[in-house]
Nucleic acid binder design. Structure first.
Lengths: 218, 218
DNA sequence: ATTACTAGTAGACGAGTAA
DNA sequence: TTTACTCGTCTACTAGTAA
């Protein structure tokens, strides 16, 4: 991907073209890209050809918008910047305590997981998980966390029931060692489950909807 | 700034050249930039000329590193991406309560600031500021906040003493309206001052080093 | 191996202009 | 006003090669 294209995409996005169609003449785009109207017009044609933008060529003024592919290009570059500026040795997730349905305990208690947690994490988890609803603005950080290695916990079958692979990431809540656990094959999640040697709710006197921070190690 | 340069800077940074000197031959750089050895060599000379990188030209292999100016260029672009992907209608700053030296009160009490606060923010600030040491990982967000408009508070001279321009940004702490205040011509800061109608320390029973979140509106 | 010069060239750009 | 064609220029690139 030529940086000329991502540059143009970024500037179009900054003009608002990521969410909806925006009216931008080739002259205007030329100004923001610091090039002539002719070159900007050509750039638009190139981006259209690459299917990075779509256009609604009205009578007076064209309206353009990034396609999903165009947004993906920008996300790719954004993630490069995150690697440069955000990742130190941990990522902080902010959120609020939520009620689990008790299914956390059911999973943790499974011998197939339990043994691996002890072996690979170095602590015997308290039976039950602390559920945290991650702030909307921090949900993207989960992608970054998932792009790192983590500790692979193999799934198993037990009495005809299948328990999938999960990945654990070592973490801390106020200096207490714990781990967040996510399904290996998971889509979008905004609730994380935290396991710990201690009963976290009791240890920190947490109530539902209390704010809490989790520092995930990388 | 030509996107060709920031592209090269970003790739060098991803190779580790943001923190320390890295050994990269012009051939290698050419590979990562998808260009010839000759062009990569030229690009390096250009970046050197612009003082965006520095070089230690050893006998066998050159070692290069981004300068502060080079890192700033990347930060600028990073902030553009943050605006695209992170910013909804607010930015959350996380940090801990710190002791001010009482100078907050001294400034707030100045009639020159006081009147403008009341007029432009819509509340009469409690005399005194809450100082918050922003988490290291959130300090970068201050740049993003500063890149937005904010509410300009003009400086003034009073008894031979000059009080500089400051910028206020409306914010909330746990749903209580407040504002963060930063000097208009400020360098790097990691402590923010919060003003509010109420005495925040008392209202929220805050002690020094307590964790706290501030939601800055955009 | 390196880095980086010179020379030649492909292509990106802008001016002029049509629709 | 728009968008976008053709065409001439100029520049950013690569190949060849020196040090």
């Amino acid at each position: 991907m030529d940086e000329r294209y991502t540059f143009a995409l970024r500037k179009i996005a900054l003009l608002g073209g990521m969410d909806e169609y925006i009216a931008v003449s080739s002259r205007e785009l030329g100004e923001t890209l610091e090039m002539s109207q002719q070159s900007a017009s050509k750039r638009i044609l190139e981006l259209l050809e690459l299917r990075l933008i779509v256009r609604d060529l009205g009578a007076r003024k064209q309206r353009i918008k990034l396609t999903a592919a165009g947004v993906d290009e920008l996300k790719k570059e954004y993630n490069e910047y995150r690697r440069l500026f955000e990742l130190t040795d941990h990522i902080s997730l902010h959120g609020v305590v939520k009620d689990g349905m008790g299914e956390g305990q059911y999973y943790i208690d499974q011998e197939g997981y339990r043994k691996q947690f002890e072996e690979k994490l170095g602590f015997k988890p308290y039976p039950g998980t602390l559920n945290i609803s991650v702030d909307k603005e921090d949900v993207g950080k989960l992608d970054v966390i998932k792009s790192t290695a983590g500790i692979y916990i193999n799934g198993f079958t037990m009495g005809g029931r299948t328990f999938g692979d999960v990945i654990a990431y070592k973490a801390k809540i106020k200096n207490v060692d714990c781990a967040i656990v996510v399904p290996a094959r998971s889509h979008y999640v905004d609730i994380i489950e935290v396991i710990c040697k201690y009963h976290l709710r009791r240890t920190f006197s947490l109530n539902t909807d209390d704010r809490i921070d989790v520092k995930v190690s990388l």
